[in-house]
Design a protein around this nucleic acid. Structure first.
Lengths: 236, 236
DNA sequence: CGTCGCGTTGATCACGGTCAATATAGGTGG
DNA sequence: CCACCTATATTGACCGTGATCAACGCGACG
């Protein structure tokens, strides 16, 4: 809940605020509040959007939609430097919740929307972010509509693996190996890929037996052959 | 290929240009070119984006993505007044093609992007459009990942049916009935819903036998009970 | 040490896919 | 205007992937 200094912020140049110069940044900093959430905490609901807007400083956030009978689909995974919230509309049409412990840099709605009008660079950055998200949601539509369970799992592992290479800043020059803590439960993975958790578990076991990945203690995963995963993902 | 007068344009107030006042509109009009495409014609490819940006004046455009082996997913359906193109990036990561005959109001890339910087209202309108598209792509992810074939078809029919109520300006006050020409082939519908065209055909026949819709001559469809479709769509 | 949440594995089932035959509708030329 | 042709759509029989139901394993924590 403190005003910390933006200039030392880990996501200063990758996040939305990266579009602003030092002087403009002061205004954003003035309305920013840091929040820490533990895994499972809701961030915003289609009913109550307690936090209007935020940049993710660390951790993973899942965006979900559900049918009345409980069937759930994760419609977006957000990582450090990603933006959360639905401008120009009081309520989002999805729920957001912390998948891991999460640190947010959050903004109150009215104040943030004022800055959006005042600084076109900020609005342009938000537009770029939104266009990128739209691109990846279209990739995901192809996955959900047309890929097999095996291809889905491979696509997902390659994605998370690559992201951990970047974030973890690993010295893996060969770029064919990754080791990370899976930020999602098996059920979450199922809800992201449009599968059941049993199918997720089976497919992971299969990849393990084929020597493509290694599963130690539930959450800890090693990708032994990232290239092979890419091949499986796109059916090459 | 003519400069027509924007003030008489059918989509003047619903499309991107709706954000501009008469004077600003002159600048946009100056770079606009009208194009007519027949069904099946490509609009932009991830390889060649011959038309950089455009508003749809009439007709339906489908955005598709494919795997190497030919499996295809429609990742977006665009109607009159919708915007086409990928700003801030030379190539889109999808293909766009005319699903029906289409009239476009198109813009050359560099000129349009200049206007985007010059008129923040235009950029804001584009942002709003993009956010709306992101919302509906998330709705579609829920459909693709979690709905049954029957629910998918019902959702789709209700969507197209409602849209035809608006466009066709029908006097259907009861709002429970719609009649329209399906703009997509069965294969297109299958690619949109993540099904095969056989399953699409079977589900349509089933709805027909249940008296919820009426199928005359392939493309012409009547929705006899729109409310019932909504119930099926969301499993109420 | 027992409980609880999470994950794995097995047996069976059903939804939707595949392959194939037939039907219908536009479209073209005689 | 009809005969023909090809696209597109419907229907049927069968099959396979992934869902469902259920038992068991395992680790964390009180």
């Amino acid at each position: 809940m403190t005003h910390s200094e933006c200039s030392t912020c880990a996501i200063r140049h990758r996040a939305l605020c990266g579009a602003l110069d030092a002087e403009e940044l002061q205004h954003l900093n003035g309305i920013a509040r840091h929040k820490h959430l533990v895994a499972g905490e809701p961030i915003l609901t289609h009913l109550d959007s307690s936090i209007s807007f935020a940049s993710i400083v660390s951790g993973v956030v899942k965006l979900t939609k559900s049918l009345q009978d409980g069937r759930t689909q994760i419609v977006g995974l957000q990582f450090a430097s990603d933006f959360i919230g639905r401008p120009f509309q009081n309520e989002a049409n999805y729920d957001a919740e912390a998948a891991t412990d999460v640190q947010l840099c959050s903004f109150e709605r009215a104040a943030f929307e004022k800055l959006l009008v005042r600084f076109p660079e900020l609005q342009q950055q938000l537009l770029k972010f939104t266009l990128d998200e739209l691109d990846s949601s279209r990739d995901w539509m192809l996955l959900l509509g047309r890929k097999t369970a095996r291809e889905k799992i491979a696509t997902f592992l390659a994605m998370v693996g690559r992201r951990s290479l970047v974030d973890g800043c690993s010295a893996a020059d060969q770029l064919n190996f990754a080791k990370f803590d899976m930020p999602l439960t098996r059920t979450d993975i199922a809800d992201l890929l449009g599968l059941t958790m049993e199918t997720v578990s089976r497919q992971l076991s299969k990849l393990k037996n084929e020597g493509i990945i290694h599963l130690e203690s539930g959450r800890r995963i090693s990708i032994l052959d990232l290239q092979k995963l890419d091949q499986i993902a796109d059916n090459l």
